[in-house]
Design a protein around this nucleic acid. Structure first.
Lengths: 230, 230
DNA sequence: CCTGGTCTGTCTGCCAAATGACATTTTGCG
DNA sequence: CGCAAAATGTCATTTGGCAGACAGACCAGG
């Protein structure tokens, strides 16, 4: 992979917007690129040199394992986002986070310590990162709210809308989304049983709201779906 | 309230640890103190001058209202924490956050813009704030995990343990906690019906795990309760 | 020291969804 | 290509815990 390319990618993360070329070059020095094939895990090299990742292409599932070995899906991130131990909160006890490529992925890695130094030297960047974390916080607030108040059907509708808004492409009023998640994974995200997800999705299809195969979804009536999720 | 006192309080938030006296004095200039009586709301003055709050004494419930007017409890914060629009994420649409004193509260307020300036000048401080937000993120991750995998009984046990660890006082193996939340509020936090919370708490009491009146709780067997929450 | 309002306690019926148990389809891969 | 593994689709069955409906307890403020 030519240097140019990496540089280009880095520069096009909005998080680096407004940084001078010299600093960009420094970032370039500190970072390394990697590609991961679909379904492969992205290893979090263990202590002490934790790593921060920038996602350049593809989609990554961030999850954790509970003590009894079940998977919790924390988030699905797309191009331009960063993940890893971004919040700088020590992971004392648990089996830490775990990331898996949902399609072919290109990432850029940087050592946590290097990244910290960078942040301390660039308040704007730090500010950007803080905002990102804040955004994720909001997402979780949403998720909790949904779980407290909505039934499964609404939660699934809600999930579809959000996924569409985040990753979908609109063509003439119809949203198409590559779906990287199995019903099981959707179930974990919305807090439901796998079978219920399957059934509900089929209901939505029968009602003409959505269409789907294993490759992806199209949402025909986003507004209606949004209304259903309320 | 004498200046000294305010200064003292500010200095004892660990977030300001390691800052020089001159800066502290500046922070002191920018901030104002206020006391709020139990059960009173803490007003978030609307646009454009948003405010950041430092909680000095007491406990505050942070919640939001859903579009249909129901309350979601996002968090309960105790002394030393900060709240308000900390994450700098614009609150576009929704009815923003809403804070209510759970007991007599003393806070220190600072304009968001001033706070931002301060952060930009003090990378360490900025970093501290980022960490705080990261911590809240973790809390939410926990909450979501609980809602996905645990039944109500476990969630309530889990809540008690966390509340105890955060706000309780240990005396000879027994934890006592002032409880500022009604069963209804606990229900909103754990995602359950009020009646179920009441019943479950009484079960725990019958089993000798906890004791409680309307003023507070004592947890007799924290370890056992922790085991129950798994 | 009343008294209206908010919290707590308890019971009953009921239903959304979980569980479990399959058949069927799809997909990755040797 | 062909086969095992994984992902879907559809049942029937069971159940956790919600909703509603009260009664009693506990305030706070006149």
């Amino acid at each position: 992979m030519p240097q140019q390319s990496k540089f280009w990618y880095l520069k096009h993360f909005n998080i680096f917007e407004g940084m001078d070329d010299a600093t960009m070059e420094r970032v370039n020095q500190m970072s390394a690129m990697a590609t991961i094939k679909s379904h492969q895990p992205i290893y979090f090299p263990d202590e002490p040199a934790k790593t921060i990742f920038f996602l350049k292409e593809g989609h990554v599932k961030i999850s954790r394992l509970t003590s009894d070995g079940r998977e919790v899906i924390l988030d699905v991130v797309g191009p331009g986002e960063l993940f890893g131990e971004i919040s700088f909160v020590r992971e004392e006890e648990s089996a830490g986070e775990l990331a898996q490529a949902l399609d072919d992925v290109m990432i850029c890695t940087i050592k946590k310590t290097d990244f910290e130094d960078l942040l301390k030297m660039h308040p704007d960047l730090n500010f950007q990162v803080t905002k990102r974390i804040g955004l994720r916080l909001k997402k979780f607030e949403e998720r909790v709210t949904d779980m407290v108040f909505k039934d499964v059907r609404k939660r699934i509708a809600s999930f579809l809308v959000r996924y569409a808004e985040e990753f979908g492409k609109i063509k003439g009023g119809i949203v198409t989304i590559k779906m990287h998640l199995s019903h099981q994974e959707i179930a974990l995200l919305v807090g439901a049983a796998r079978q219920t997800v399957t059934t509900t999705l089929n209901e939505f299809r029968a009602e003409g709201l959505i269409d789907f195969s294993r490759q992806g979804f199209t949402i025909n009536k986003l507004d209606l779906l949004r209304k259903l999720s309320t």
